[in-house]
Design a binder for these strands. Structure first.
Lengths: 202, 202
DNA sequence: TGAAAAACGGACCCTGGGTCCGTATTGTCG
DNA sequence: CGACAATACGGACCCAGGGTCCGTTTTTCA
């Protein structure tokens, strides 16, 4: 009995790659992602719409595939790379580092992230990768003594890196990259900071 | 010379109200906002599509109108009401209170908020009311000594109340309302807390 | 009450995601 | 190598849904 999964034909593989490349390029160039149609992408890849949809299911599928391909190295670095991203880093330091990585990624892949987070309902919260980031961040937060609600905190921190917010700040308000990074880092640091001195006079 | 702005005809006014009411009801009932079509709303209001679009411009316009109508009282309370929402409250306390108000509003108007934040690109960041909340929150944050980046912090805090996140937590994960409120309050409190004790041994 | 202004409403248009199916490629087996 | 099955191709096609148009109706105002 041969594997129930037959090997994918090589033209299929070639086309898949072609689409991925074309879409990647198009998203990088396009002003706003939503006026980039599936037909456009198919055309740019020199492929029929049918092929495109067979390969990726639907728009969201294509976006996800693109996004995850790009994200892979960052994910890798975050899960098992060297400090300050990797697991060897102490939590209080790692949290800002992780968020910084996410932020940089979104800055570098604005249109794509935007397109993905806007696609369909549920925002980014249905996507595979969100769950991954959240779980990781949560587990790191849980190692910080005295910090309650790690689950919620992880969500809240990640919310600060939402693609549309990032775009609004970076493109809309012209906040420079480094400043944004610094602000997010400071914010994250504050959230994970040890609680204030025990005695506060009102 | 009579006013250049002619008075709106009363049938127009009546229809506008009818649409607003019908849409409100429909959104409250509907499972997910995006399968609620403009035609549906028009029909439910006993009105033609043309009327609907003339009155509100486009889908986003209708959503905005609905949202702002509902939001009005909260806004009022936040801008000039009694403590803990109003301006008499000390900043450190007012920030969590404001966020709590936003959160409760989104909990009570989930579908609507969801529909609005998802409509069109730019997420909620183009909407009038977002700018309002942000400005208010920012001004409050600015009164807290030693807290830098009030502008960014306001964005980041508001991001924690994004409709899709709220829905994900409340509906998706079944976090009870009070717990969610408590978590957000704690989170906000931490962000606005005085910096940790000056001496930290590493 | 009559005519101009404004609103009505539903038929209509158009974009864009997604499907279908006759045709072209690929893989395999004798 | 030839032939047949399996698989992929691709663009014509479908359809929902947002938005427009314009002949008809209502309101307003003199």
């Amino acid at each position: 009995m041969p594997d129930p999964e037959r090997r994918t034909r090589k033209d299929a593989a070639r086309n898949r790659r072609a689409v991925l490349e074309a879409a990647d390029a198009l998203f990088a160039r396009s002003e706003s992602p939503e006026d980039l149609t599936m037909a456009d992408i198919a055309a740019a890849a020199g492929v029929g719409k049918g092929t495109l949809f067979r390969a990726f299911g639907d728009r969201a599928g294509l976006l996800r595939a693109l996004y995850e391909a790009r994200l892979e190295p960052v994910r890798e670095a975050a899960e098992s790379g060297p400090p300050p991203l990797g697991p060897a880093t102490p939590p209080q330091e790692r949290v800002p580092a992780l968020l910084d990585a996410v932020l940089c990624f979104k800055l570098d892949n604005r249109r794509l992230a935007l397109a993905l987070e806007e696609s369909g309902s549920g925002g980014p919260y249905r996507a595979e990768h969100y769950a991954g980031w959240h779980a990781l961040l949560r587990s790191v937060l849980e190692r910080i003594p005295g910090l309650p609600d790690a689950d919620f905190t992880a969500h809240a921190l990640l919310a600060a890196t939402r693609a549309d917010l990032v775009e609004r700040l970076a493109d809309g308000e012209g906040v420079p990259r480094e400043r944004l990074r610094a602000q997010l880092a400071a914010y994250a640091a504050k959230v994970v900071a040890a609680p204030p001195a025990p005695f506060r006079q009102d």
